[in-house]
Design a protein around this nucleic acid. Structure first.
Length: 824
RNA sequence: GCCGAAGUGGCGGAAUUGGUAGACGCACAGGACUUAAAAUCCUGCGAUCCGUGAGGUUCGUACCGGUUCGAUCCCGGUCUUCGGCACCA
């Protein structure tokens, strides 16, 4: 072991050096090209896990590379420090969330430093600190003032035994995660943000993000879920009310045989009031309430419903159809009511079969295998319209727009668009979150706290019982407030915000982290935004990334954000696996980073993680692989020890005399080109490292030669150190000094390559016959097609192979191959 | 069910624009050094068949087919795995 390099000493030494010299502190400099590099900030759970190590290693390689390339790189770090685990710790161990969280942030910061990640810690933010959440509250107030925050009644998950509100994640299979009781519902007034007002922009602007993975854009697109169709008003028989429905298939309007309302539809009570049907309808609704959310919305649940006793009239055909309520219609999509076309919708088909309702085909499948008048399942494809009055005979697509046109002139209905995206419920009945800066005044209703009174601080005199609605209600001082409008007594909102709000604008705060007057200065944001490269887990593909886009667009609209899209380029890294499974405590396959750091050091851990797999793919943890990375670093270090003197004393210039010189020089330039290209255009860190390994292997051979050039050895050694330094910065700083340099490797610039060194005198050319490799020859480089073919034909083996064969033609690719096409 | 991605040696992975499949590393085997071990260095390492040997044959990128002088790469179909959404009218 004694001849292995002393990573403990080396890593500590250079970490202190970077900190003392403030190497990664960043200020706005107009003359330098800026680069904003950001990794998703962590929740301070207390310990970094391998997923973190991967995320932040990727970021740090980019950081150090970009810095060497001369960019003014903003690379900050902070804490997404509000959230449930801190509160659970408080309930279980009696530790205040404040203490628990701050301890964890300290602990994790130490771990970050031990990893050697180059952050500008002067810009550190923590979302749980009043100087940060003051501005989260300020942004909320702006939402409210712009009519984008509102309150609405909504059921929450309620555990009757714990007597508390549960987050969706705390409900497992309809049971309370803590005590196993069946989770019920409780109606509470809750705050929403009107993200649906931004649905169309959030959708269309995805096209402005070519630097995002297609997969993520598609997930967001599906989540937003735009569908186009029509809104149609069906008159209700015996009432002056209209039944408004949304459909994506107005071409099937003549096939409507019944209507369905969601059980929660406000019209239901009115329809059945004082009729013989009210009993059955009430009972049906009551039965549904016993079902958990999961069962209620499961696609496999059998479709059930009851007749309301009322009829609606098809405005196009005049046909009278029954109105049902059913479990498969959702209140919060479209209008909460549908027209049912059993012939052309599978759900309606199943329901009609069950209740003996007519099935009228209006689209002709034009397929002899399908009997239109006796369908076995709904026919949902395109076709010619039938049974559709004056629209019969039209292609259904054509018919769709003709029917909409007709309805618009008649005032029956109109073209319409619907989104699956719902408004964002942001109320949480929790303590450890940003207080919602709102209060209720008997006179003025809901009013926002005046901006100069922000932040509304979290009260400290609360009890953590794990019971009740929100711990803030237990504070004696918190609830009473003065209405900023009328000066009268008002009652504060005791719910806190969803922590996703905190993380929806932190990247803007980093631009100006200590501003006490505004969330951030517009000038500084203008200099740094947008984030040029964002890196994080794919699990945030939808929620976090969509909310951050929403906030940025809103802040842009009110004149604060300089950009409409926060993240220009996005890299979503894959998970870290062990034995093919995600590392988790319950499986027992967790590899704690601190153990690896203690045994091998940060450089080895970083190198292994970057080498084992491309960043967007899953990474299979391998102890043997870590050992291999460690071996490589020792191999590299031995080179530096052995060649340091030669390098220090060698002349700056060198001549390429021998073939070995040529090969060494080729490898140096090949590696520089490959590493540069792999990092800057492909995130292919694994192949970048393999190129460095090839160069090291070549240098090992080259240095043994008696006719070696020390100038070239110096060049090779120094290139190796520079290329490796973004990956393994500590050992590279150390070797850089050994090689005779006084400045940090971070400020020495990135090496450039010489294209002429990559041109070989002779190139290996593959000879194929009918596309099969038969021979390889060495030919002079740069030959054109004819010359190359001549060279191939001159080869004796090739001659023998073609002996007596009829060469029909040949295909020559300069620098690569010659393929002779031979008739059998 | 719908949408999407992937499938390459014993393993992680490479092949960047349709042009030498398996770079680099791990594991394994043999050798050198050593009293011995560790460490290190060298060599081999997809399968198959022929040959004492040098060397060569055939097959091979999940499976079946197509386009092409040439396919891991493009097209059609099948299977498997993973991810997202899930009664969205």
């Amino acid at each position: 072991m004694s001849d292995r390099y002393q990573f403990e000493k080396i890593e500590k030494k250079w970490q202190e050096f970077w900190a003392e010299n403030e190497m990664f502190k960043t200020v706005e400099k107009a003359n330098l090209e800026k680069y904003y590099l950001l990794e998703m900030f962590p929740y301070p759970s207390g310990k970094l896990h391998m997923g973190h190590v991967r995320n932040y290693s990727i970021g740090d390689v980019m950081m150090r590379y970009l810095k060497m390339r001369g960019y003014n790189v903003l690379h900050p770090m902070g804490w997404d420090s509000f959230g449930l685990p801190a509160e659970n710790a408080a309930i279980q161990n009696g530790i205040h969330p404040y203490v628990w969280t701050y301890d964890n942030m300290e602990e994790m910061k130490t771990q970050f430093k031990r990893l050697g990640v180059a952050y500008d810690w002067d810009r550190e933010v923590a979302t749980c600190k009043p100087d940060y959440y003051k501005w989260t509250q300020w942004i909320f107030v702006q939402f409210f003032k712009n009519g984008l925050a509102y309150k609405k009644k909504n059921p929450v998950n309620w555990c009757p035994s714990c007597e508390t509100v549960l987050a969706n994640e705390q409900v497992v299979d309809g049971l309370c995660e803590r005590c196993g009781s069946v989770v019920g519902k409780k109606e509470l007034e809750q705050w929403y943000l009107k993200i649906t007002d931004y649905a169309q922009r959030l959708l269309s602007d995805l096209e402005k993000l070519p630097g995002w993975p297609e997969k993520v854009k598609l997930m967001q697109k599906n989540w937003i879920g735009k569908s186009t169709g029509a809104e149609v008003d069906f008159p209700i028989e015996g009432s002056d009310k209209q039944l408004k429905i949304f459909t994506t298939r107005p071409d099937t309007l003549f096939g409507v045989t019944y209507m369905v309302l969601a059980p929660e539809h406000p019209l239901v009570a009115e329809l059945v009031k004082d009729t013989e049907y009210s009993g059955a309808v009430d009972e049906f609704i009551r039965k549904l309430q016993y079902l958990s959310d999961i069962d209620r919305t499961s696609a496999t649940l059998e479709k059930e419903g009851v007749f309301t006793g009322k009829y609606a009239v098809n405005p196009l055909s005049g046909v009278r159809v029954p109105i049902y309520i059913a479990n498969y219609v959702l209140m919060d999509y479209g209008t909460g009511a549908i027209m049912a076309v059993p012939a052309h919708d599978q759900r309606d088909f199943d329901f009609a079969v069950k209740y003996g309702i007519d099935i009228i085909p209006v689209i002709d499948p034009e397929n002899p295998d399908i009997d239109v008048n006796n369908l076995k399942e709904a026919f949902i494809s395109e076709g010619k319209m039938i049974n559709s009055g004056k629209f019969s005979g039209l292609d259904n697509k054509e018919g769709m727009s003709r029917i909409i046109e007709f309805m618009e002139t008649e005032g029956i209905g109109k073209k319409s668009v619907n989104f699956r995206l719902r408004d964002w419920l942001i109320s949480r009945q929790r303590y450890w979150g940003t207080p919602i800066p709102m209060m209720y005044c008997e006179k003025c209703g809901w009013v926002s706290e005046s901006e100069e009174n922000l932040p509304i601080l979290l009260p400290t005199d609360v009890e953590f019982t794990g019971k009740g609605e929100s711990p803030l209600t237990t504070s004696k001082s918190f609830e009473t407030a003065k209405c900023p409008v009328c000066g009268g007594e008002a009652k504060r909102e005791t719910d806190t915000m969803d922590t996703f709000l905190d993380s929806s604008w932190y990247f803007l705060r980093y631009c100006d982290a200590h501003n006490e007057e505004e969330p951030f200065s517009k000038d500084k944001a203008k200099y740094w935004m947008a984030v040029d490269q964002y890196i994080g887990g794919v699990e945030h593909a939808i929620l976090h990334l969509m909310y951050a886009r929403f906030f940025t667009k809103f802040l842009y609209d009110i004149g604060y954000s300089p950009v409409e899209e926060p993240f220009t380029n996005l890299l979503t890294q894959g998970m870290v696996l062990k034995e093919g499974r995600k590392m988790s405590k319950s499986v027992g396959n967790v590899v704690p980073p601190d153990v690896i750091l203690r045994k091998y050091g940060a450089d080895t851990a970083r190198l292994f993680i970057m080498f084992a797999s491309p960043p967007e793919k899953e990474l299979e943890w391998s102890d043997a692989g870590v050992e291999g990375s460690y071996r490589f670093l020792n191999r590299v270090y031995r080179l530096a020890v052995e060649l340091a003197d030669a390098a220090v004393n060698a002349p700056g210039a060198f001549k390429i005399a021998t073939d070995a010189d040529k090969e060494m020089n080729y490898m140096i330039n090949y590696a520089i080109k490959k590493v540069t290209n792999d990092i800057s255009t492909r995130f292919a860190f694994n192949t970048a490292i393999s190129a460095i390994m090839e160069m090291v292997n070549t240098l090992y051979k080259y240095k043994e030669r008696s006719d070696r050039s020390d100038g070239l050895v110096k060049k090779a050694l120094e290139s190796m150190i520079l290329l490796l330094s973004p990956f393994t910065p500590h050992i590279c700083e150390e070797m850089w000094r050994m090689a005779g340099h006084e400045e940090s490797v971070c400020v020495c610039g990135w090496p450039s390559f010489d294209e002429t060194a990559l041109v070989m005198d002779m190139t290996e050319i593959v000879i194929q016959i009918n596309g099969k490799v038969k021979e390889r020859i060495l030919a002079e480089s740069g030959l054109d097609r004819e010359k190359l073919t001549e060279a191939a034909l001159a080869d004796s083996k090739v001659k023998a192979l073609l002996e007596g064969k009829n060469v029909e033609r040949y295909v020559a690719v300069p620098g690569k191959l010659v393929n002779f096409v031979v008739r059998a």
